[in-house]
Nucleic acid binder design. Structure first.
Length: 518
RNA sequence: GCGGAAAUAGCUCAGCUGGUAGAGCAUCAGUUUCCCAAACUGAAGGCCGCGGGUUCGAAUCCCGUUUUCCGCUCCA
């Protein structure tokens, strides 16, 4: 990361705060780590991004519908999804090297080491899978025995969630810091629960633990049958949702890139098994197009293929954006197989099958009952927000030979801009304010409009540039005579004189969703 | 959570070896101004992050604490 890009990122953050886009949460109480609030313009921009997504996904696709599921869900859902087990890790630190490890992985490392050593004792009869000795029962040597013994203890401790036991195990078998030859000084093993839990019910004794959802997807899966039946949906079809999710990140930093409370825009697309690859490719392309339609330089985007796939996936790509601190994931497109629905079928005991009456040309019979496969598109709204801010942000040098000059401008797509137009009387007298307000009262029905009469006209233009307002309309003395105004364009800073009556159409065309969705 | 750095007006900062807080911009009121910032007059704005200690006296020295930044660790 060069200094200047680092600088830009810092400037975007302070710009976001200074102009009412993003504030640190609870700031007057010293803040709350990794939690942020969206201010007056941030909320508008965020809403506009949501609208763009919702229109592109739900409104433009007649086989996709949107839902809004609750954040609280039955605790069993997170057992079924694997989050209860997979989302909490026992961690241990070496006080000497200051390195942190997952305690279970440290022990597994020891097991692997012992195995390798033990297996080396069978030179003539190399085991095929590098794990099992040639004849386990007969020839278990000391190292292999020990490996087996530790493995069993590890599993027991993990199931019992015995953190003290894990530490004892590490000390007992003299497990070293893999990165240091020195004798390690271990801290206690601590559990990092990535899911937030809370209690349901006012009386604590009776209360069951419920989790704040760590992803919105499960709210879609558990409603899959409701939506399919009530909407008479036919495969392939999708369910979209925008909503908050919560993760207790070990380290949550880098502004709104990683927050404890964040918002996701997800769509789960249900398809016939065997067709997932084709749909996966289609959504992978469609989603990148959605990003590029905003006019972002394509070179700032790239796909990143997951080589190591999660247990439920058979393909996964991320869409990454080049932030000032490097390429980071903004959106994931994952082929989730039938894992989630199968799990929920198993844990809930409810059949989640779909009867497909279409005839398979190969067998001449209907496809019949199956659990659909799922293609997921999941975009982080807050990351999209930051991406949009960074991409739009420019400190423009307008200096001429006689005068130093610069402006800070957000080149937001007009559809996303928080304020669509600002209206200024050129001066505060001669009836210009009244005229300007009259025009504004008409425009504000359709558009988010700001009115400003304070300060020099140039200053007012620059203030609007800083929040990305695409149009500034100025009422001058000529307006009083012939009802024309000047309209000034943010990016070019050029002005034209138009009839006040044409403003609705000019602004309307400029901020129309047609520009993005056509 | 660990290590390093930082914290003074809304923002950017100054404030030397301890002597009771200052600038520019921004804000507010007014003046000026017929189209691209920083014109004029005036005003307001500070638990010097918080708590404790040393001292006659602390923004300044010491200890603790909180928050932020930069690394490390984690990331479905």
């Amino acid at each position: 990361m060069s200094k200047s890009t680092d600088e830009i990122f810092k400037n975007v953050i302070s710009h976001a705060k200074e102009y009412g886009f993003v504030f640190p949460s609870s700031e007057i109480y010293d803040g709350l780590s990794a939690v942020y609030d969206y201010g007056q313009f941030g909320a508008e921009l965020k809403n506009n991004i949501k609208t763009y997504w919702w229109k592109a996904m739900v409104q433009m696709n007649d086989n996709i519908v949107g839902i809004d599921s609750a954040i609280f869900m039955h605790p069993k859902i997170w057992k079924a999804s694997g989050h209860v087990d997979g989302f909490s890790d026992p961690m241990i630190d070496n006080k000497i090297t200051k390195k942190r490890y997952r305690a279970d992985q440290l022990i597994e490392g020891k097991i692997d080491e012992l195995r390798a050593k033990g297996l080396a004792a069978y030179p003539d009869n190399k085991p095929i899978d590098n794990q099992t000795p040639p004849n386990e029962d007969l020839y278990l040597n000391e190292d292999l025995q020990k490996a087996q013994e530790i493995e069993k203890k590890l599993n027991d401790l993990l199931i019992a969630e015995d953190l003290g036991g894990l530490k004892e195990l590490i000390i007992q078998y003299k497990i070293k810091d893999p990165l240091s030859k020195e004798e390690p000084d271990w801290t206690d093993v601590r559990q990092f629960n990535l899911m937030f839990s809370t209690q349901m019910g006012a009386v604590a004794d009776d209360a069951d633990v419920v989790y704040l959802r760590p992803e919105t997807a499960q709210g879609i899966f558990v409603n899959y049958l409701n939506v399919q039946k009530s909407g008479r949906m036919k495969i392939p079809f999708g369910i979209a949702q925008i909503g908050k999710a919560f993760r207790n990140e070990v380290i949550a930093r880098q502004f709104i890139i990683r927050m404890r409370e964040f918002e996701q825009m997800e769509m789960q697309f249900f398809v016939r098994p065997g067709t997932q690859k084709e749909w996966f490719n289609q959504w992978k392309e469609a989603r990148l197009k959605w990003h590029l339609a905003l006019g972002t330089d394509a070179a700032k985007y790239r796909y990143h293929e997951h080589v190591k796939l999660a247990h439920y996936a058979d393909a996964a790509y991320d869409i990454e954006f080049e932030f000032p601190f490097g390429f980071k994931e903004v959106e994931g497109i994952h082929s989730r197989t039938d894992f989630d629905l199968s799990q929920h079928q198993k844990f809930s005991g409810k059949k989640l099958q779909y009867f497909d009456p279409e005839v398979d040309p190969d067998t001449n019979k209907p496809y019949g009952n199956y659990i659909p496969y799922v293609i997921e598109t999941s975009i982080g709204l807050d990351r999209m927000f930051l991406l949009t801010m960074i991409n739009a942000f420019e400190e423009e040098d307008l200096s001429t030979e006689d005068k130093q000059d610069s402006r800070t401008v957000l080149h937001l797509h007009p559809c996303l801009a928080p304020v669509k137009a600002a209206i200024f009387p050129l001066t505060k007298k001669d009836g210009l304010p009244e005229k300007a307000r009259e025009i504004m009262d008409r425009l504000k029905i359709d558009f988010n409009i700001q009115y400003e009469e304070k300060d020099a006209i140039g200053k007012r233009y620059r203030r609007q540039d800083a929040i990305g307002t695409p149009y500034c309309i100025t009422v001058d003395h000529q307006t009083l005579e012939d009802n024309t105004v000047t309209i000034r364009h943010r990016d070019s800073m050029e002005q034209e004189r138009v009839a006040a009556a044409d403003l609705d159409k000019i602004i309307g065309d400029g901020v129309s969703w047609r520009n993005l969705l056509k």
